[in-house]
Amino acid sequence: MTRFAASFAKPHPALVAFITAGDGDTAANLDALVAGGADVIELGMPFTDPMADGPAIQAANLRSLAKGTTTADIFAIASAFRQRHPETPLVLMGYANPMTIRGSDWFAAECAKAGVDGVICVDIPSEEDAELGPSLRAAGVDLIRLATPTTDPARLPAVLDGAGGFLYYVSVAGITGQQQAAQASIDEAVARLKAATDLPVAVGFGVRTPEQAAPIAKVADGVVVGSAFIDIIAQHGDAAAPYVETFTRSLADAIHGAKEIAA
């Protein structure tokens, strides 16, 4: 069983936590996420031009790059994480150019070597899959696709073709860390997506608190939280880990217990 399959087979919905690599003490923050109960971790690859991100994650990208974070540093962080945490799925999330600049085969091989389970590339839609997808699949790394409120039923099969790991439902047409989607629209979308795929469906964008996460966890297989972690790291810098762990636990409690309350 893959790490993704094992994580989503747990008897509760998953907390999917995002932080940007190289922003703050990344190794300590990753450990804090695991200790606090995160089920899947997305590690953001910083990029100079993060077009899909709101102010919080933009700033995290720039802080990381200003400290000189390189692609080699990110794979070193990932490898070390895999040594310390053999079970927790790790996803690299970022933009096409840093992922493809040395060739997609190189990137896929490095992911496999570092124990990365999946990759989310914001600006490679299914139409441009050849740019990255075949290399990742050949290397045994899942390509995690995004579905959005604008993904109409006619497009959905193309989005799902070649997708692996889980399906990430971007619940608002917009950028990260902004407004939250109406719960009713999330309920409807998750039901529609789950009817179309056997992949677990995780919902993200605009989810910042345990109170927001709980109702989503009632219907989805996972809830993604990113900008709220980035805010904590921005506030506490290299000493953020204990705060990250406390916040993770509050989210994990709300998400893990959501379906029990429902029942």
């Binding site: 490679i124 139409e127 959005t148 993904t151």
Partner: peptide, 18 residues
């Protein structure tokens, strides 16, 4: 598909693709 040789294309977020 919008390519001039290897260049061009549609490298956008899924939200914009439709």
């Amino acid at each position: 598909r919008g390519h001039f040789g290897q260049f061009g294309g549609r490298y956008v977020a899924e939200t914009l693709m439709p």
